[in-house]
Design a protein around this nucleic acid. Structure first.
Length: 241
DNA sequence: TCGTTAATAT
DNA sequence: GATATTAACG
């Protein structure tokens, strides 16, 4: 008894921007250094127990990208300044360089920062290292960004496939999957608004993309349809360039 | 060395 | 099965 959404396209865009309901996650953002340096005698089991101290989180969750620093990572400010020099003799050990960090959890907020960084850099300059530096998130490694960037690119490609779906010459698995695109695809990626120019690099003059909006038959007709998604893609108009 | 892709692990 | 990490390649 649940009507499947059939008009997602109506408010697809508006649904994306999540107001403020994703935040109850402050888990493994604790400085890996601390966690690892002191390392909780938890033996194996990467389950970074969130510290009891919880900073005010529900308050104003402005979506402002650059604004709030991470939770607590006074040291290692990376970007800024740096410093210095020298880090020759490492008096204090920096285990963060040799020990394996738990597992990076890309929270919507973190991803938002990621997207923002890529947007400011531009697709062409959006390389792991640059993104990582721009994000200025301590504990974030180039590997982390590279991995996430890989997935993010696939996501963008997927979006392109559905926006402009050509029946001919289209043999991309993405398109197939795209056909069954649901608002539930890519939880994380869908949480963050994707800059327009992201969809088509090299097209600064991108007007609002026109989703085909399958507003065709399928008006009344009790039977038929409902055949789960993935059916035949709507006849895309032959739009030429 | 860095960036990208595929494979692997959790 | 999804997501992040690790390895291999350019």
């Amino acid at each position: 008894m649940r009507e499947e959404d059939s008009n997602w396209f109506s408010k697809w865009e508006d649904e994306l921007p999540p107001p403020e309901d994703l935040m109850p996650l402050s888990q493994s953002l604790i400085t890996p250094d601390l966690a690892l340096a002191f390392n909780i005698p938890s033996a194996h089991h990467h389950t970074p127990p969130p510290p009891p101290s919880h900073p005010p989180q529900s308050t104003a969750l402005s979506s402002q990208p650059n604004s709030s620093a991470e939770f607590d990572s006074p040291e290692l400010s990376g970007a800024g300044g740096g410093g210095g020099g020298g880090s020759g003799a490492a008096g204090s050990d920096e285990p963060a360089r040799t020990l394996k960090r738990p597992r990076l959890v890309w929270t919507p907020q973190l991803h938002k920062r990621f997207v923002d960084a890529v947007a400011h850099l531009g697709i062409k300059n959006a390389v792991p290292k640059t993104i990582m530096q721009l994000m200025s998130v301590d504990g974030l490694t180039r590997e982390n960004v590279a991995s996430h960037l890989q997935k993010y690119r696939l996501y963008l490609k997927r979006m392109q496939g559905i926006s402009n779906n050509g029946g001919a010459g289209n043999n991309s698995p993405a398109a197939l999957s795209a056909s069954g695109m649901d608002p539930a695809t890519d939880h994380l990626f869908a949480s963050s608004p994707v800059p327009a120019h992201f969809l088509h690099p090299g097209r600064p003059n991108s007007e609002h993309f026109l989703p085909f909006v399958p507003v065709a038959a399928m008006q009344h007709h009790t039977d038929a349809v409902v055949g789960r998604a993935r059916a035949a893609p709507p006849p895309a108009a032959a739009a030429a360039v």
